[in-house]
Simulated scan of single mutants.
Amino acid sequence: MIEIIKGTEVGRYADEMDQAYRLRHTVFVEEMGWTDLAKPDRREIDQFDDEHALHMIYRRDGEVVGYQRMLPTTRPHLLSHVLPELCEVERPVGDHIWEWTRYSVRKPFRGGGRGLSPAANMLLSAIVEWGMDTGVDRMIIEMDPIWLLRLVQLHFLVEPLGIPRTVGSASVVAVAAKFDRRTLTMLRDLRGDHRSVLRSTPELEIEGAVS
């Protein structure tokens, strides 16, 4: 099951978040070579890990094996303040659009080839389920262009926001990916399980939404 942790509640999940930050460091610093993110304590934390961030954690036998972070586009996020050169059109902004960042899965749970591993399916399903519960239907992603076709095959409606550019040593493209129940059905069919992947579906306030 996927646990959703609001940025205002990370103190209640100190062990889970410590594991998540260390997983991020392993993936982005040690494996991908993003040395600018390196920290002496091997916990990758940045300026967007604030009260507005939403953390999604996948645990197996008490160990965090998968993680991702969602950021509201109505506040500063990667595309707006770190990688603005990736966007060559009007930047998508709105309460229904969040940015998907820091996706990390431990090596033993990644699977092989270009297929979607069970952990990746769980994490993507969590975004779609959470989005459908909270009025979010689109996410911004900065990713390897090789993922474009895969997202389309998973029934995301994908719109490139610019051409691929080199970030560090990697090719990265920014996209807006819209999802709906068809996306969730595809992910569930691939998983062979139509039950919810969320441990719970908390009432989450959407940044800027009218209450």
Rank of each mutant, 00 (worst) to 15 (best):
M70S: 09
D189W: 07
Y58E: 14
K6H: 03
L204S: 12
F28I: 01
E159K: 13
E88Y: 06
L86M: 14
R102I: 05
W100L: 09
L198R: 12
I206V: 15
H55I: 02
W147R: 08
A38E: 15
I140H: 07
S80N: 09
R188K: 14
L184I: 05
E51Y: 01
E90I: 02
V105K: 01
E9D: 14
M1E: 04
T185Q: 13
R106V: 05
P145T: 03
M186Q: 12
D41Y: 06
T26K: 07
M32T: 03
L154Q: 13
E203Y: 04
R188L: 03
L154A: 10
T8K: 10
A120I: 03
H81L: 03
I45R: 14
I206A: 07
T74D: 04
G208W: 12
L187A: 09
G168K: 00
L116W: 06
H52E: 12
L148G: 10
T183S: 14
Q19T: 07
I141K: 02
A38H: 02
V197H: 09
A38I: 06
F28M: 00
E85C: 00
M186F: 02
L184T: 05
E142I: 13
G33Q: 04
A20E: 06
A120L: 15
R60L: 11
T166S: 10
A119I: 08
R199M: 09
L190N: 11
P84D: 10
F28T: 00
W130P: 01
L116F: 07
P84R: 03
F28V: 00
L37H: 00
G135S: 13
E3P: 01
R91I: 09
G33K: 00
R59Q: 15
D95G: 08
H25G: 02
V152R: 15
V167D: 00
E205T: 12
S169P: 05
R75V: 04
V152C: 08
W34K: 09
H96P: 04
E63H: 11
T101F: 06
H52F: 11
G66T: 03
Q153A: 09
T183C: 06
E203R: 07
G111C: 03
E16N: 04
A177W: 05
W34H: 08
P118I: 12
I2L: 02
T35W: 00
E203M: 00
L124M: 15
R191I: 08
R91A: 09
M122Y: 04
V64Q: 02
Q68F: 11
H25I: 06
R191D: 14
F28E: 00
L79F: 14
E30Y: 01
E142L: 11
R182A: 10
R69T: 02
G11W: 10
R24T: 07
H77S: 10
R199F: 01
A209D: 13
